[in-house]
């Protein structure tokens, strides 16, 4: 199988365990855990390669990190690699969310359980912010890219525009800035 950028091809086992670990620990979103594992711990992709592949997956429809597992798995072992990565990613969350559904239906009204859930959700959302800033930091070295980051954030995060409309509005400017910058 073709593997890009000279990284060695991963075994099925490594793929499964890697995505399983990211999935099972990914409270409030898998992205922080996937980035930590793939970039910071295992070095399967450089920070720039991770950000580029993630951007592609985000522009296409579907859950971003699942798309990421499809594409990353296929780079190592074709369709079977995709299957291994995706099943690894979703196996534990699938079981846990069903158990949690049952637990919450039964005990969710008890105050102490409720407070624990609030603290968990607060920390999980903060974690997503930290990871978002990590991904954005290298882009802030270029003025044009910084403006686009800020514009996309403003449109969706503050003005509550839909994501397709936001992409439609920002993409022409972003393409123009990138074209000027690359020349």
């Amino acid at each position: 199988m073709t593997v890009q950028h000279g990284h060695p091809s991963l075994s099925y086992r490594e793929l499964f365990i890697g995505f399983f670990a990211a999935g099972v620990s990914g409270f409030g979103g898998v992205l922080p855990f996937a980035r930590r594992l793939i970039v910071e711990r295992r070095g399967w992709l450089s920070a720039a390669e991770f950000t580029d592949l993630l951007a592609l997956c985000q522009f296409l429809p579907g859950p971003n990190i699942v798309n990421f597992a499809f594409v990353f798995g296929a780079r190592h072992h074709g369709l079977r690699g995709s299957l291994v990565a995706v099943v690894g990613l979703l196996a534990a969350p699938f079981v846990i969310v069903l158990l949690l559904g049952g637990f919450y239906t039964r005990y969710g009204q008890i105050p102490i359980v409720h407070h624990g859930f609030i603290g968990l959700a607060a920390a999980a959302s903060g974690l997503m912010l930290g990871t978002g800033v990590k991904i954005a930091l290298p882009l802030f070295r270029r003025l044009g890219a910084s403006i686009i980051v800020a514009a996309a954030f403003l449109l969706v995060g503050i003005l509550q525009f839909g994501i397709p409309l936001t992409i439609l509005l920002t993409l022409p400017f972003s393409l123009f800035i990138a074209w000027r910058w690359r020349r």
Partner: peptide, 26 residues
Amino acid sequence: IVQAAITPISSGLILAGAAYLIRAAD
């Protein structure tokens, strides 16, 4: 060029997603 154009948009969307989650959770 396309990659350089979509990466900052994607990055802004992730930050917006984080802001959405923070508002929903807190």
